[in-house]
């Protein structure tokens, strides 16, 4: 089976701090990583390939340095990597990003399954996966926590569990289809020595706008309906009461107060 995994290179947002004087993000020295949810998508693609045969293509969009993320995917064992990189793609919101990725997937060729992480940790939108599915006119299933059944004989279909409020929904989709996956799905592997060696010299395909069958007006910032109007650090100032004394005194003051105000 042919599987495409979409990955995003993201700053490790857990390492991002705010400069409280200028109210801006301190990005310097923040390492770039593969979006953690996408690693679960890569892992599932590799597991499915081991079970069903076929090939896995890792796909990303971004500036040239995203090659590092794709090389990491190669070192995990994906068969080939494609980077969509062009100044025309810059400033894309989820609609323009999904449009461009969908065009990249069309160019890669026939596919049975597209896997994405449920969302990226820098944007947290969870929109690009379903939007890709719409552009490609395939069904999509989000928040997939388990693949229960996969049948490649016609009619090809996949049955999954979705993590939804209060439990798990069992859903079946025809193939080809797009899934976005959550952490519970699997435990991502570490790079293998052999694959890492091979990944070092493996070629990464790079396509620009001219290589894709795209409407230039749908790319990048021009193709993005949404824009950021302003960015700010919220100001909180509740001017609360700080209790004095050691642990025992403070605890007593709090318990007394919560009791007298009937909060407990």
């Amino acid at each position: 089976m042919q599987i495409v995994v979409c990955i995003k290179q993201v700053p490790d947002t857990a390492e991002v701090k705010i400069d409280r004087k200028t109210n801006t993000l301190i990005r310097e020295g923040v390492p770039s990583i593969i979006n953690p949810f996408d690693l679960h998508a890569v892992e599932e693609a590799l597991l499915l390939r081991e079970r069903c045969g076929g090939a896995v293509t890792a796909l990303s969009m971004g500036p040239p340095q995203v090659e590092a993320a794709l090389r990491e995917a190669l070192s995990l064992g994906v068969d080939q990597a494609v980077l969509l990189s062009d100044r025309a793609f810059a400033g894309a919101d989820t609609l323009a990003t999904s449009y461009t990725l969908a065009a990249g997937i069309r160019k890669i060729g026939a596919f049975d399954l597209i896997l994405c992480g449920k969302q990226a940790i820098d944007g947290d939108t969870a929109q690009v996966g379903p939007e890709i599915a719409e552009w490609l006119d395939v069904p999509h299933l989000t928040y997939v926590s388990g693949i229960d059944e996969m049948i490649l004989a016609e009619p090809a279909r996949i049955t999954v569990s979705r993590l939804v409020e209060g439990g798990y929904e069992q859903v079946r989709s025809s193939l080809p289809s797009l899934l976005t996956v959550v952490r519970e799905l699997n435990e991502p592997r570490l790079p293998s020595f052999r694959a890492s060696l091979r990944a070092r010299t493996q070629a990464i395909t790079v396509w620009g706008a001219a290589d894709l069958d795209v409407d230039p007006e749908r790319l990048g910032i021009d193709g993005s309906p949404t824009g950021v109007s302003r960015v700010f650090v919220p100001e909180y100032d509740r001017q609360g009461q700080i209790f004095a004394g050691g642990p025992e005194d403070q605890a007593r003051a709090l318990v007394d107060l919560l009791r007298s105000t009937r909060l407990i």
Binding site: I18, I121, D122, G227, V228, R230, V231, V233
Partner: peptide, 13 residues
């Protein structure tokens, strides 16, 4: 919240 919830953004269409 944007950027992993480190900052807030106002978005318009």
């Amino acid at each position: 919240p944007a950027f992993g919830g480190n900052i807030m953004a106002a978005i318009v269409t």
